[in-house]
Amino acid sequence: MAEIHTSTVPSDALDDRSVSKAEITARRLALIAGLLLLLVAPFLIYPVFIMKVLCFALFAAAFNLLIGYTGLLSFGHAAFFGGAAYFTAHSVKEWGVPPELGILIGTAGGAALGLIMGFFAIRRQGIYFSMITLSLAQMFFFFCLQAKFTHGEDGIQSVPRGHLFGFIDLNQPIAMYYTVAAIFLIGVFIIWRFVHSPFGMILKSIRENEQRAISLGYSVARYKLGAFVMSAALAGLAGGTKALVFQFATLTDVGWQTSGEVILMTLLGGIGTMLGPILGSAIVVMLGNYLATTGFPVTIITGAVFMICVLVFRRGVVGELAASRIGRKFGLARWL
């Protein structure tokens, strides 16, 4: 009996439900358009601005891996982002390691912090989980304030960008830009693969029905911890890259405001969508940049945006688009 049915299984289906050829083509075209945009962007827009967007976009995408695909609201992600910025900045400036190794050290540092924080937080649910992550992140903030190597209020200044793999001069803005773009793409690909993997399938089932997942023999805590560490590592990748782009690491990036900002970015773009956090961070960074020149207090505007988002479009920009009539018609929810 079984053999008869196995032969009819579509092997090219990307997701759990079968996807039409036209949709796959549309998806590929959208992906190519996005890559082209990333390629030509530095010639159209100020590269440093795009690099800032890309760093925060990767940060938000990493955060979304946790809230969107694991259902855990971390309020301490700044520790991984800002912590990694310190690790990368310190290792590049004081130890003189090449930039690629510096970023790796930042990523590993983020992962290590994630392992410690996750170990304490993961067994708690809901608001308790969020509070533990917040308090541990605050402890790390005070550590950064007091520790010698971070230079306290001054931060680590004038971090050398160095030469990537020994021959690409990152002091060239274009070289730096494409490096950041590549890191961003690798990071987003890792997230995409993580979510759409056998491991991701178990995460999804845990989110759907935790009790059932336990009764099927899955140690839920380990899966959550795995996702937490992966999210922290990628937040670290984003933070370490940012330290090289701006050539400094300061307390701002480890502060709780940064943890709040990444929540705003993800919420604004759309929790649980691939594209949402990326778009959300672009909007928030853009908002900050324009308002900075007008002298109007940024926090009031971002606060208002946050409120509007929660009240009017809770699914975020991308989430609402996917849930709209047009979005449903084209099945956008499956690939945004």
Binding site: M1, A2, E3, H5, T6, V9, S11, A13, L14, D15, D16, R193, F194, H196, S197, P198, F199, G200, M201, I202, Y218, G226, M230
Partner: peptide, 22 residues
């Protein structure tokens, strides 16, 4: 043994389809 591979694509699970169908 297909519960922790976070680096493999979802299609790795296609090998289970036969058993599931049975």
């Amino acid at each position: 043994g297909l519960a922790h591979q976070f680096w493999r694509p979802m299609s790795a699970l296609d090998t289970l389809t036969g058993k599931a169908d049975a």
